[in-house]
Computed example of a mutant assay.
Amino acid sequence: MPLIPEHLRQRLIINWELMIVAPEAEIETPDLYPEVKLFTPNANAIWLLTELNPDTNVAYGLCDLGVGQPELGYVSLDELESIATDGFEIEVDLQFDTYTPLSKYSELAKAAGRIEDW
Rank of each mutant, 00 (worst) to 15 (best):
45 A>F: 13
15 N>T: 05
6 E>Y: 09
54 P>K: 12
39 F>L: 07
100 T>P: 00
54 P>I: 07
14 I>A: 14
67 V>Y: 10
72 L>H: 06
63 C>N: 12
68 G>Q: 07
25 A>T: 13
49 L>A: 08
69 Q>A: 01
60 Y>D: 01
15 N>G: 10
96 F>P: 01
91 E>R: 09
37 K>M: 14
52 L>D: 04
55 D>Q: 12
58 V>A: 05
58 V>D: 07
30 P>N: 14
47 W>P: 02
24 E>D: 11
55 D>Y: 01
95 Q>A: 14
51 E>V: 00
68 G>R: 08
47 W>K: 03
72 L>M: 15
54 P>Y: 13
14 I>E: 13
60 Y>E: 05
98 T>D: 10
42 N>I: 02
53 N>D: 15
73 G>F: 13
9 R>W: 03
50 T>Q: 08
56 T>G: 09
8 L>Y: 10
20 I>M: 10
62 L>C: 02
32 L>E: 01
59 A>Y: 02
58 V>K: 02
50 T>V: 15
87 G>M: 08
18 L>T: 15
76 S>F: 14
25 A>C: 12
83 I>N: 02
78 D>F: 03
48 L>G: 05
101 P>M: 08
91 E>V: 01
37 K>D: 02
13 I>C: 08
60 Y>P: 00
68 G>V: 07
4 I>H: 03
20 I>H: 11
75 V>S: 04
39 F>P: 02
93 D>S: 09
79 E>T: 02
31 D>K: 09
57 N>F: 11
52 L>K: 05
102 L>F: 07
83 I>G: 00
7 H>K: 14
59 A>V: 09
11 R>S: 11
4 I>V: 15
13 I>T: 08
11 R>G: 00
35 E>V: 14
5 P>V: 08
36 V>A: 01
83 I>Y: 12
62 L>M: 06
92 V>Q: 06
31 D>G: 04
40 T>Q: 06
11 R>I: 06
46 I>V: 15
90 I>Y: 07
99 Y>W: 14
64 D>I: 00
4 I>T: 06
40 T>R: 08
30 P>L: 06
33 Y>K: 10
56 T>S: 15
61 G>Y: 11
23 P>A: 02
49 L>S: 08
97 D>L: 12
65 L>Y: 13
59 A>W: 05
62 L>T: 04
11 R>D: 12
10 Q>F: 05
76 S>D: 11
82 S>C: 00
64 D>R: 04
27 I>V: 15
10 Q>C: 02
73 G>V: 05
24 E>W: 04
49 L>V: 01
81 E>A: 11
28 E>W: 01
48 L>V: 10
5 P>I: 14
96 F>V: 05
67 V>I: 08
26 E>N: 13
50 T>H: 04
21 V>F: 06
